[in-house]
């Protein structure tokens, strides 16, 4: 296993300037520094509003950092994500960083199985293998087979979330960002996700996550990074 961090954040700062509210400056985080290594799950701790989701979004390139550095190990090279070219960010997302959010952003008219199989195909599976792998993944997450051929738009919140998890874990990204992936799951499905996280660790994947439920957090976290330590001064 490599000693190089998959993610290296240094002196990262971020605030929002609300131009429509008279230019109010809302500080989010300041001077954030930590690393994520292969095979570990680092959990962000702190109350809502502490900036946990914003941190994940900055790593994914969805929010722009104001200062500091986010280096991601991409194809054996440390790549700077702060102010990176959009095309580079998209390549890093494709090959290196996966993101599992709470909500499925629905692509209309595509079935649950195809949504998951699409990811397997992106990672090199042929059509038939991808369909099988997708079915296995959905079955593991207890999505009834009669739903596989339907677009998830009409699914319950928990079912949609599980389709989203299936997509996130189907990929072979080296770094996974988990934004409350177990938020609306029952105990059985939460346990499935926990075992999937454990398998990713064994495979050397590094994870950075947010888990509000204390029991789940205990079960997955190798380390907790307290985001309140990086509270930005107003």
């Amino acid at each position: 296993m490599s000693d190089r961090p998959l993610l290296h954040i240094a002196k990262l700062g971020k605030g929002f300037t609300m131009h429509l509210q008279g230019g109010i400056r809302l500080p989010v985080v300041n001077n954030v520094s930590f690393e994520v290594y292969p095979g570990e799950c680092v959990v962000l701790g702190g109350p809502s509003g502490a900036g946990k989701s914003s941190l994940l979004k900055m790593v994914y390139g969805n929010y722009a950092a104001d200062s500091g550095s986010i280096e991601v190990l991409h194809r054996d090279e440390a790549v700077q994500m702060v102010a990176a070219d959009p095309r580079l960010v998209l390549t890093v997302r494709q090959k290196t960083i996966g993101y599992v959010s709470q909500f499925l952003s629905v692509i209309p008219r595509v079935s649950a199985q195809d949504l998951v199989a699409e990811i397997a195909r992106e990672w090199g599976a042929d059509e038939a293998d991808a369909a099988i792998a997708a079915g296995d993944m959905l079955a593991r997450l207890n999505i009834p087979e009669r739903l596989w051929s339907l677009p998830p738009a009409t699914f319950s919140g928990g079912e949609q979330q599980r389709v989203n998890i299936a997509r996130g874990f189907m990929g072979q990204h080296q770094l996974l960002l988990l934004d409350e992936p177990t938020a609306s799951l029952d105990a059985i499905n939460r346990a499935v996700v926990l075992s999937m996280v454990a398998e990713k660790k064994t495979a050397g994947v590094g994870m950075l996550g947010i888990f509000h439920d204390p029991e789940t957090r205990e079960a997955v976290a190798d380390r907790i990074v307290d985001v309140t330590l990086f509270a930005a001064a107003a």
């Binding site: 929002f16 300037t17 609300m18 131009h19 429509l20 979004k57 390139g61 969805n62 929010y63 722009a64 959009p86 095309r87 960010v89 998209l90």
Partner: peptide, 30 residues
């Protein structure tokens, strides 16, 4: 993939589409 926001004939903000829409910096984009 990418977006350019125009106002009064000029490009005032540009970048990755989801970043510009989720974390817009210019007053007009906001």
């Amino acid at each position: 993939h990418r977006i350019m926001v125009m106002k009064d004939g000029k490009v005032i903000e540009t970048g990755l589409t989801d970043q510009v829409l989720d974390d817009p910096h210019q007053a007009y984009t906001q």
